[in-house]
């Protein structure tokens, strides 16, 4: 049965097997490849998207469970002030090496700051512990989040 959901503000109807994970509907059916495949079983966080604002592993979330939900992906991150501020902080700190996991890192960091705008250092660390960076840019990811947390986010950032 087709599932109707909202992706980055647009209503989409997906006619895929009920158990197809959102990740593979995004990448294979909609051509939205910003969300990354890393492990397929929810262990690495590379595929993180927001479902109704909550950081969610798209590789382990069946499309059929998302009827009527609001999904947002890395492609729409710049539409939120927190997302924009984090994108800029990522560039300012030259966070990344290969960059493959960074869509997931950014989506997870945005969800963290949306919920807790001024996390303590160890709150950042534990909130980000589910996202693997194989290049181990952790020091810079942490610093970029702390930077945004310290400076706050203006609505027109």
């Amino acid at each position: 049965m087709p599932t109707k959901l909202t992706i980055n503000g647009e209503t989409r109807e997906l006619d895929v097997p009920d158990d197809m994970p959102l990740l593979w509907a995004l990448r294979g059916e909609l051509g939205m490849v910003g969300t990354k495949f890393g492990c397929g079983v929810g262990l690495c966080g590379a595929c993180t998207v927001h479902v109704d604002g909550v950081a969610t592993r798209s590789c382990s979330t069946p499309v059929s469970s998302l009827a009527g939900k609001q999904v947002s992906t890395i492609e729409s991150l710049a539409e939120s002030p927190v997302g924009r501020a984090l994108q800029q902080a990522w560039l300012d700190a030259d966070v990344m090496q290969c960059g493959y996991c960074q869509a997931g890192q950014l989506m997870n960091a945005t969800a963290l700051l949306a919920k807790n705008p001024s996390p303590a250092s160890d709150e950042i660390t534990s909130a980000m512990a589910g996202n693997i960076c194989r290049c181990a840019c952790y020091k810079r990811i942490h610093a970029a989040i702390a930077e945004v947390a310290a400076n706050g986010v203006s609505a027109d950032a």
Binding site: V33, F37, E75, L77, V95, M96, G99
Partner: peptide
């Protein structure tokens, strides 16, 4: 001079850039 990664702006926007993003 400390210069940021040239592809980083594309990466933070989720633009297709990796091998597996080929369509």
């Amino acid at each position: 001079r400390a210069i940021g990664g040239i592809d980083s702006p594309k990466i933070v926007r989720g633009e297709p850039i990796f091998g597996v993003d080929t369509q």
